[in-house]
Design a protein around this nucleic acid. Structure first.
Lengths: 363, 363
DNA sequence: TTGTACGCGTTATCAA
DNA sequence: TTGATAACGCGTACAA
């Protein structure tokens, strides 16, 4: 160590300069600083909060940055800040087309705000879900859990570390995005009643699915209100095959207006019934949930309670970002706007061919 | 500066200790070092390449790490290394269900190797695709481009900076994953010929789609070989509506064995034809491509040339990782195994109800 | 085998 | 308003 002057920065910049010649490593704020004739810290200021620097140097720096095709290194930025501009999304089953739109909505909302989406799947297992969550946790600013299989307590535990928003489930003390099932269910029950169905049935999903129970509660309540009989079948697997397996029980039940936990089950049920010679909708009316891609491909096309899947994904991401902002700048508790936005997420009946006038007479 | 001893490390550790009391910030290698009574660098060595440290201290460190619930900070790790353990996947259109399985395959392969998947959409625009690519580029070890809209040259440009693998398209000098269309097309053409169709038609996708042209080339070649007449229609939009729009032209064309660029178009075409009173498959046989989710929901269910979508996604990710490994350790050019794996990706005809004996007589 | 010291690119805290 | 400098957590030559 021959010298004791301001060595580190000088040495650093010399090294940068040398490096610049050899490889084509991306430009750093030091390169910009050199080009603009200012200090690196000034560059940092100018590029992050464009108010703490004079207009003149601001422009010089911006020009230099543009010329050098500068792109901030997210990792270097994340280190002192802790902010990664990345949100994780964990879905329980990528196979399920209902999530496609959720993913799409979240991705759109994210990239619109210069955020990036990290995707992971839990394969319907609480254990791998927790694993994925922990792995991702270190990398993201917040996590969206779509129909999580985790226990409430585990979710709250995660939420202590980073903002967590849950989709399609209510968990105390955690941000939740759940579309209002009431309007869609109300319409559906009324629709079936109008069609002449006096005995309804609900084909439930898995017991562990919060949403399945929620939908059942809503349907039952509505039927009581309307004086209709309704029975619950299941639990069943929330897939096409799961719907198929319920066909026999439904057929013998005497119920003629069937609402299924989701479109997948509805499609399976309908297919199985049809292949047994049952006429839809003459003998049974079938209504699904979600309005997934392909639910109108069937013959007859499926009537369904449409869920605002894409909006749900987008709203979840917005909520995460809001929680993030709140944790930094705790003054503003204007959840109101967000709550309002989330409240707009309502279901709605889409009437297609699988529900119609009940006319078993025409045997 | 009262002292000139080994200040920095000591000061750092003191601060850590103080911090440890207050907030619940995640444990670092310094915490482990303190607990195990060794230096932080030893911890780093023990945790990265478990061979450069004595068995005894190794255990001590691992115990301490476990006790502290240690989780390496990916950002801090990425900074000196440049490695992020993250792969980006850009799809041209999340709406298209064909990508669902690709995403799924890639995600599965990634998380199996402790990699994380970054998802982005280009919304069918070359410009936003480039933007997304550049934004993501800084964050990932490599990028997978599914049916990119970018020009070949732009893709090569990207590939100069980080490993790039392209799905469903051939680009010189860039890793590509394209399922072999030959077997599926051969089966399909033979199938239609056997059914009595003498005049075939191909409903093309967008002109910009490399895959659409590729499929057409293969079909045409196969038809020539078989002495069948075949005409190309389009270009069209690769959606259900795009398929619908081709119905009139197809109906007047005289062709009766129709192969569509993808299932979406096939479904639209079939629906439109049926709603005009045309009987499928008696009058027209329709075959799609890909075997997407829901292609068996239609009545009749769609015959289709199945693509190994999921395997394609998984293979693409594997390829990226291989290129990554090769760029680090250039000695091993054992692409052979990979090429072999990629070569196994073949299409295959799935015969369902939309194709059948040609019997226009039964008017 | 282990410890020392530095750099990765950025932000944040001070002085100036 | 700007500059100098210390973190952020980890990997790694180099020295011991």
């Amino acid at each position: 160590m021959p010298d004791s002057g301001p060595m580190p920065p000088a040495g650093r910049m010399l090294q940068r300069a040398a490096k610049q010649r050899t490889a084509q490593s991306p430009a750093t704020i030091y390169d910009i600083a050199a080009l603009a004739g200012v200090n690196a810290s000034t560059v940092s200021r100018a590029l992050t909060k464009p108010g703490r620097v004079s207009a003149k140097t601001q422009k010089k720096i911006e020009d230099a940055a543009a010329q050098l095709n500068y792109q901030a290194n997210p990792f270097a930025r994340a280190l002192p800040t802790g902010k990664t501009n990345t949100v994780g999304l964990i879905v329980s089953d990528i196979t399920n087309p209902a999530y496609f739109d959720v993913i799409r909505g979240a991705e759109g909302a994210a990239s619109a705000r210069d955020y990036t989406l990290l995707l992971a799947e839990s394969a319907e297992s609480a254990q791998t879900e927790l694993l994925a969550a922990k792995r991702i946790m270190t990398t993201v600013d917040g996590i969206i859990l779509a129909s999580p299989r985790l226990a409430d307590e585990q979710i709250r535990e995660l939420a202590k570390k980073k903002p967590v928003v849950v989709i399609n489930r209510m968990v105390e003390e955690v941000g939740c995005v759940v579309a209002d099932v009431q309007p869609g269910v109300t319409e559906a029950v009324r629709h079936l009643a109008t069609l002449g169905h006096e005995s309804l049935a609900y084909v439930a999903g898995p017991d562990r699915s919060w949403m399945s129970g929620h939908r059942w509660d809503s349907i039952r309540g509505r039927c009581e209100w309307s004086g209709l009989r309704v029975r619950k079948f299941g639990p069943g697997t929330p897939t096409v095959d799961g719907g198929r397996e319920m066909a026999a029980a439904i057929r013998e039940s005497g119920a003629t207006g069937i609402i299924c936990y989701n479109d997948l089950m509805a499609i399976g049920l309908m297919q199985e019934l049809q292949s047994a010679g049952v006429r839809i909708p003459a003998e049974f009316s079938i209504v699904g949930f979600d309005n997934i891609f392909g639910s109108d491909f069937t013959t007859p096309p499926l009537s369904t309670v449409k869920s605002p899947l894409r909006e749900t994904g987008a709203t979840a991401l917005t909520l995460i970002l809001a929680e993030l902002a709140a944790s930094i700048e705790p003054g503003r508790a204007d959840d109101s706007a967000l709550r309002a936005e989330a409240a707009k997420l309502a279901t709605e009946l889409v009437i297609r061919g699988s529900s119609g006038q009940h006319s078993p007479a025409a045997l």
